[in-house]
């Protein structure tokens, strides 16, 4: 039931996203431009500008929601989230480091390669820290340190680029945007993200067992190292590929699992699909708002998700204060 509602929300918001844009297209020419063709301009706008944007918002939202739910389950930590623990910003840094130094020419393929490597490295690092010291606080602090470090390095690389536009792109890499993406970005990111979803979903049973504690999980026949590997690769693929094409979009993976959890049986595995769909819906909604709030100037979508997510995060911290300290 929950999944059906969230799925419907995704569909409706995708449709709304397709109808929102600076070009004045009425409903009829939008629909005919999307499916049939008709007017050349309407067709190009729908198929080459709005469709990739809506698809990326949906799939990146799914990636972030799913990765958040899985990380919270694996680390048994309500504050785990790719953005907060430094995975997204590491992915940004990886993409920036490879693209702007011109190591791979101006090829777009450099972006996911760098982002995936950055994301994977950060998850490995965080798991190493979290595995040795299971305390919630350690993970969050390590994540904060990693986020600041990679954010600073991203800014540094962009500032050092001789291209005058590079330093403006700090905003994109730290706050994310879906402006003027194209189908080539979709084809670049979607296959990698889909592979990441499969890997993350494959960890579902292990996450349930892990909710009983690591020893109990081992006695149930769960191989922890294999689960960790699945989650590392899955997160790197899903979050890294999304970040490569849309920059760092934060807080989706934090907010969504908490919002949908009360409507599930609270097993980590039954949280995965609702979190994924909820993430897609939330990012679609945020991206629509980013275009509508200030009609003449588009906002970075990461600003909006942070505006929703950061107070929520603060509330979670206050609520979980006793457990944390």
């Amino acid at each position: 039931m929950l999944n059906a509602i969230l799925g419907l929300a995704c569909l409706v918001l995708t449709a709304v996203s397709l109808l929102v844009g600076p070009a004045d297209l009425d409903l009829r020419s939008s629909v005919s431009g999307l499916f049939a063709g008709g007017d050349e301009a309407a067709m190009i706008i729908m198929q080459e500008i709005r469709l990739p944007r809506a698809l990326l918002a949906l799939t990146i939202g799914i990636s972030l929601g799913l990765a958040g739910a899985v990380l919270q389950g694996l680390l048994r930590n309500p504050l785990a989230e790719p953005g907060l623990i430094g995975v997204t910003s590491s992915a940004s840094f990886g993409a920036v480091a490879i693209f702007y130094t011109g190591l791979a020419g101006a090829s777009l393929y450099a972006l996911p390669a760098g982002a995936l490597a950055g994301a994977a490295l950060s998850v490995v690092l965080l798991l190493a820290i979290a595995a040795r010291n299971g305390a919630t606080l350690t993970l969050i602090l390590a994540g904060v340190a990693l986020t600041s470090l990679t954010g600073a390095l991203t800014s540094l690389v962009l500032n050092l680029s001789p291209n005058p536009f590079a330093s403006y792109e700090i905003i994109f890499w730290l706050l994310g945007s879906l402006r003027d993406r194209s189908m080539s970005h979709v084809w670049l990111a979607l296959p990698l993200m889909a592979l990441g979803w499969l890997l993350l979903a494959a960890s579902a049973r292990a996450l349930d067992a892990l909710s009983l504690g690591e020893e109990a999980a081992s006695s149930l026949g769960i191989r922890l190292s294999a689960t960790r590997l699945l989650v590392v690769l899955g997160t790197a693929l899903a979050v890294g590929a999304g970040t490569a094409v849309a920059g760092a979009i934060g807080f989706i993976g934090l907010v969504v699992p908490h919002l949908v959890r009360p409507f599930t049986d609270r097993l980590p595995s039954s949280l995965l699909v609702p979190s994924a769909l909820g993430g897609g819906a939330l990012l679609l909604a945020a991206d629509i708002a980013a275009r509508l709030v200030v009609p003449t100037r588009e906002l970075n979508v990461g600003v909006l998700t942070a505006l929703i997510g950061a107070p929520f995060f603060l509330w979670l911290v206050v609520r979980a204060r006793r457990e944390l300290f």
Binding site: F99, Y100, S161, P162, N163, F165, A166, E169, F172
Partner: peptide, 8 residues
């Protein structure tokens, strides 16, 4: 700029 790419 050929030697310094930017998303711009």
């Amino acid at each position: 700029m050929a030697d310094a790419p930017a998303l711009a």
